[in-house]
Computed example of a mutant assay.
Amino acid sequence: MSHRESPPVPPYLVLALGILAVSMASIFIRFAQREASSLVIAAYRLTLATLLILPVAIGRYGHEWKRIGRSDLLWMLLSGVFLALHFVTWITSLEYTTVASSVVLVSLSPVFVAIAAPLFLREAISLRTALGILLALVGSGMVGLSDACTGSPLRCELGGSRSLIGNLLALAGAVMVAGYFMIGRRVRGRFSLPVYIAIVYGTAAVVCLLIVAAARLPVLGYTPMTYVWLSLVAIFPQLIGHSSFNWALRYLPTAVVTVTTLGEPIGSTILAYLILGEIPGWIKLLGGGLILSGITIVSREGASA
């Protein structure tokens, strides 16, 4: 890791920009959902991001494409499938539950990676990691139940709750992106970032477009403002946000970057309160705090392993 190099701009400033960019995702998606379906939004996000990064991947890193082996290609294609399913489930969750619940629950991906690591990566779970997983799971239960409870916390109606469906979709999104991260850990280091994400994003875009076609959803005919929201989803959270985190890894320890990205649920919740008027209850705040604490423990342990 070359984080000792002198950066051209302060890395923490870039991290702050990245957090702000990814925190805007749920807000942009909410506005786009006024006219476009969640599946179409996912397809646009990945397709536009792929079209923007592909010229760089081909123009500056064309030599890398010739040395992509069959095994690596298959892994990257599978990673793209996981990424597509992540966006399909998570973006759809925003139709059913609050921004706070959705972004906090989908942030559980490091926990699911830690759970799956002993099986797929043969990495042992430490006692601190187990504690982090437990805290995060308890917190996710609290967040999930808080949306299904009306009035007293002891009076919950789980059956037919739209919020519960949304929370389960967000959890599914966390599982899917965990698969994406685990494959990335296996393959990413052998290729430059533009080449890797061009293949993965491109695959995810194709999967989403096929799903949209199968569902016979319209991809054109929206108002100009909807196209603006769709473009902003692709540019800010997908390209600027994630690229900022990857850039910061060159100058800062992995643990610092990983834990800093946990500011996304906080930023999204604040923006949802200011823009959408969504006020999280005390149960959700407490559960979200447990989730973020658990993820922090898991991320630090994973980074130091």
Rank of each mutant, 00 (worst) to 15 (best):
P224F: 10
S231Q: 00
L168N: 10
G179S: 02
T150A: 04
I240K: 04
P237S: 12
L220Y: 07
F181N: 09
G166D: 10
L239K: 02
V212E: 00
D147I: 01
T226G: 08
V187M: 11
G166A: 11
G173P: 12
L217M: 13
G160T: 10
I199P: 01
I235H: 06
S192A: 12
V175H: 01
F191S: 07
R185W: 06
P224M: 08
L239Y: 03
M176Y: 10
R155E: 00
V187C: 13
L171I: 15
R186G: 01
R188V: 01
M176K: 00
A198R: 05
P153A: 09
Y180F: 15
I240Y: 04
L168Q: 08
A204Q: 11
Y227R: 05
V200K: 05
F236Y: 09
R185L: 13
P224L: 13
V143I: 15
L145T: 04
C208W: 02
S152T: 00
V206H: 04
C149P: 06
G151N: 07
S146G: 09
V200I: 12
S244Y: 03
A174F: 09
L164E: 05
L220N: 03
L158T: 03
G179P: 03
Y227H: 05
S243E: 05
D147W: 00
Y222K: 07
T150D: 03
I235D: 07
V233F: 06
F245A: 13
V228N: 05
Y201N: 12
T203H: 00
N167D: 15
G202R: 13
S146E: 05
R155H: 02
P153T: 08
L158D: 02
I165E: 05
M182D: 03
A170I: 01
V228D: 07
M142N: 00
S152G: 01
C149F: 06
A213P: 02
N167V: 06
V143M: 14
N246W: 05
G151Q: 08
S146Y: 07
S163F: 08
P153K: 09
A198L: 02
G189R: 04
